[in-house]
Design a protein around this nucleic acid. Structure first.
Lengths: 347, 347
DNA sequence: AATCGCTGTTGAATCGATTGACTTCGGGAG
DNA sequence: CTCCCGAAGTCAATCGATTCAACAGCGATT
């Protein structure tokens, strides 16, 4: 059987519509754009012709003239991670509501791939770019990109750059989490996951140290383990921590994913999270409530981030000269079972 | 502080490049497309001019002439669900490797929204459309869309339509799952989740009945519960099943999500999945291995689905007249703890 | 010297819309 | 009877590329 799926219909253009409605191309265009200079009967004739011929508007042709593509690029590291999936979903629905389309690209956190993706976005003439920059992205690069279209960053720590951005309140979230552990009697609290190059991690680490200091607890760098943001990363980290001469009694993790790894590692070591050792994550991904024990975590509302990013972008497009806006979304500590017990041997 | 994010740079076009390189627009264009008719020294001058001016190619302008947008539309119900997120990720990376961009739209399984999204995709002049059709999508609609661009369906059960498609082997997966339960001694096996309008569910239901028949087990319609594909749906279904005079001892669920609900419902009823009652899911979402007990399920490789869909599309674009190809991806039964025990009272 | 064939380059039409300037027409004011 | 005006349309240039047909040089052939 030979496919009949090849498009055979030859393109119907505005010219054809105009001819069918016995008006000029100009009139047809104005009619479709609801221009008041076109009389109602004429507009109707045009609309009927559109219907009869099965005309499909060509946005690119229009965009060539109007210099608007009604397209926003979203560049993230990876869609398959549930956090980013939610974020994408939020951005897409927000944009769709305003008649914009979302072009999606992923970078795998690779600078080379990122610059190629930005490049194709610019070639596609996006009206704006929402970007979660790969590690080590130079400010200069972003500044260059901003000459072509507005940029909204999904990270709030590039204050040197006059770009709108949205992000979580990492500082407050971290403080709450660490204080929660301190209230439960913990004194040796590990910080697990992420790499130093990540600005977000740096922010959380700073806040972690600061919170310890306020509570007169010495900061011990040996308790801070860098690792990939994966279950494996958490698993390996807890393994290393448990071998210390005075191991920690709790871990604050860079991400829920790391926290899951920590919990698996605890189980493998014969310990039970929530009972023998306290664990806190970050993100509140859906699995967090399903784990056994359920995971105490800092909620990050990724969908809200996506929605806000889209809104910032739409705002910027509508009013290019507004001052820069940086949205820091409040974070909430969701207390569940993984931190339920008091520390075993309070000193 | 006023934003300097407004793009101020006025557009550099091919004409400017041509002038700078002291050649015609035509030559510049040919040079950039590596046309062998242009001499090497000339090509170099053009490339230098591109560099010097910071020229950005405009794909839409080119597409207007060439009638190719190098853009593929992906329309699904919802990105936030992990299955679809994986699928999207697979499709995106495959397309990016071939220099295509992915435009993403979601329908929330709503026919109206679906047709609006398809419409904007066509207006955007996509070179192809990958579609997971909303429930009750008419074949006629899809046939119409195929007149504009090739269509790849993410469901393999529209045989009346000459469209490429990819999908799971629901039949085989279901057979394996049901046989696994039968081997464990189960005779009353429930089928939980999904609605009759879903073609995929119908397929699995048929296979479920067929497998029972081969093993001389009577089909009992009371054991088949339709429900939303959510945890709640599974929870309510098991509740209803357990109230029967002769309740089932096992459930084969339409989706992992339903299976989680069933397990929660069992726990609420004082039963333990894997010990007192067997549960099988479908999809093998990441949580499946994390649950307690871990969930036996049919693995569905969503990323592979996305990759295959993208490949089918690229193939169709390259060779429009090839015969229709339908890819059925094999499914694997992943046996875990939720089906570990033999049936309690074999008869 | 005229012709031929190459190579490398260019002019101009084209893709499908938008839009500022201009035309046409009928009616009312002067 | 002119003139002006507004309403409804139309003309033609334009956006930024691609591409076909034509053409200028130039050395080789007859």
């Amino acid at each position: 059987m030979t496919s009949s799926s090849r498009p055979r219909r030859q393109k119907v253009t505005l010219k054809h519509v105009a001819d069918a409605a016995k008006v000029s191309k100009a009139t047809a265009s104005l009619a479709l754009n609801n221009n008041p200079r076109i009389s109602e009967p004429t507009r109707q004739r045009v609309l009927e012709a559109v219907e009869a011929l099965g005309y499909v508007y060509n946005r690119h042709a229009a965009g060539l003239r109007t210099q608007r593509s009604y397209t926003i690029g979203l560049i993230i590291k990876d869609v398959s991670n549930p956090f980013n999936a939610e974020l994408t979903s939020g951005a897409e629905s927000q944009l769709a509501d305003h008649d914009y389309s979302l072009v999606l690209a992923t970078t795998d956190d690779d600078l080379g791939k990122q610059s190629r993706m930005v490049q194709t976005m610019l070639e596609r003439d996006v009206d704006g770019l929402i970007l979660s920059p790969a590690a080590h992205t130079a400010i200069e690069s972003m500044r260059r990109w901003m000459q072509f279209c507005p940029l909204v960053l999904l990270i709030p720590y590039y204050s040197e750059l006059a770009a709108d951005c949205v992000g979580m309140d990492d500082e407050q979230g971290t403080r709450r989490a660490v204080e929660h552990l301190i209230e439960r009697g913990h004194r040796r609290i590990a910080f697990v996951g992420g790499f130093a190059a990540q600005a977000t991690r740096q922010k959380r680490l700073d806040s972690y140290r600061d919170t310890l200091r306020r509570h007169s607890i010495d900061y011990d760098p040996a308790l801070c383990i860098a690792s990939p943001v994966t279950r494996r990363g958490g698993y390996d980290a807890i393994h290393q921590l448990l071998r210390m001469s005075t191991p920690p009694s709790a871990a604050y993790c860079y991400s829920d994913v790391n926290a899951f790894g920590v919990m698996l590692g605890l189980r493998a070591a014969g310990l039970e999270a929530g009972k023998d050792f306290a664990v806190i994550g970050f993100d509140d991904v859906p699995e967090a409530s399903l784990w056994h024990p359920s995971l105490t975590t800092v909620s990050a509302d990724p969908r809200g981030l996506g929605e806000n990013a889209a809104q910032l972008m739409l705002r910027r497009i509508a009013e290019p000269d507004l001052p820069v806006k940086r949205i820091i979304m409040p974070s909430r500590l969701i207390v569940r079972d993984s931190t339920v017990a008091q520390v075993k041997a309070p000193r």
